[in-house]
């Protein structure tokens, strides 16, 4: 810190002055009481999808492709659309899907994709909270960071594909652009990482940034004043019904404001061994 006092200090240094996450810097200088809770632990990042506002415009799908240079043939984020009813009483609805960044079941708090990863638990890693405190966790090919993000370390990944099968939502696929670090004959697994590289720098995920309907709301559930916390409270989203496949016990952290009950009528669980429900196509 002491040698960062010159006025010529760059913004990057400024941003990342404390700990790894620049969000940390932001939180540091955020007023007292509201943040007290958040400062004692890591944030818990979550997404609220307000289905009333989703226009099915696919800006999120494409923004994600661009932000993360996602290869053709697979997606990290998709919109499912479905036409229902009989003319003239026909309806069409849209359902955005992404990795649910599951908390995992009540017993061990480890989501199925992480549990099955042969590389998990790997080495000890440190997560710096907003106020510079350290939380230790185990990394792996796939692992859960203390702020709730389910991430992939492509260096550690061995490309076995077990997590692809273990995810009940089918959001994972092999990245044809990247070899797995653990086995150079295989491709690494890839999926939505909530744009950790942006969030860690204090910027919203790319799909959220571009959502014209503002159907995607991203934020910290541990901050009672965040918009996601308020929405979860206002719409009772934490009762277990407003997430995908609640019976799987995965405890997803993508919540849906769903007045028309689309999660039930529109979502179809992936067929075993197949990922074709996770392709974004306009009929």
């Amino acid at each position: 810190m002491s040698d960062e006092k010159t006025p010529g200090i760059s913004r990057r240094n400024f941003i990342s002055g404390v700990g790894t996450a620049a969000v940390g810097a932001a939180a540091m200088v955020t007023p007292g009481a509201n943040v007290e809770a958040a400062q004692k632990k890591a944030p818990r990042w979550a997404m609220v999808m307000d289905l009333r506002r989703c226009l099915g415009c696919r800006a999120c799908t494409v923004a994600c492709k661009a932000e993360n240079n996602v290869s053709l043939g697979r997606f990290r984020a998709v919109i499912k659309e479905k036409t229902m009813g009989t003319f003239p009483n026909t309806k069409k609805a849209f359902l955005p899907l992404m990795c649910n960044h599951c908390e995992g079941n009540k017993e061990d708090g480890v989501p199925p994709c992480v549990k099955i990863c042969p590389q998990f638990p790997g080495e000890r890693a440190k997560f710096k909270t907003a106020d510079g405190k350290t939380i230790r966790y185990r990394n792996g090919g796939t692992y859960k960071r203390p702020d709730g993000m389910i991430l992939i370390d492509k260096e550690q990944c061995i490309g076995c594909g077990k997590c692809i099968d273990a995810c009940p939502y089918g959001v994972r696929s092999f990245d044809p652009f990247v070899k797995s670090g653990g086995d150079s004959t295989k491709q690494a697994v890839d999926k939505c990482d909530m744009c950790a590289h942006r969030v860690d720098n204090g910027v919203e995920p790319s799909c959220v940034n571009t959502c014209q309907g503002r159907a995607r709301i991203f934020g910290d559930l541990n901050d009672p004043n965040s918009e996601v916390s308020k929405l979860v409270k206002e719409h009772n989203l934490d009762k277990g019904n407003n997430v995908l496949l609640p019976d799987e016990g995965t405890n997803p952290h993508v919540f849906y404001i769903d007045p028309d009950n689309l999660l039930k009528t529109l979502y179809t669980q992936r067929k075993k061994g197949k990922l074709d429900h996770y392709m974004d196509q306009i009929p």
Partner: peptide, 14 residues
């Protein structure tokens, strides 16, 4: 007052 991620205006390499 509260914690707020910036909506955009900056981007980083993944």
């Amino acid at each position: 007052g509260s914690i707020k991620l910036q909506a955009g205006g900056r981007d980083f390499s993944p």
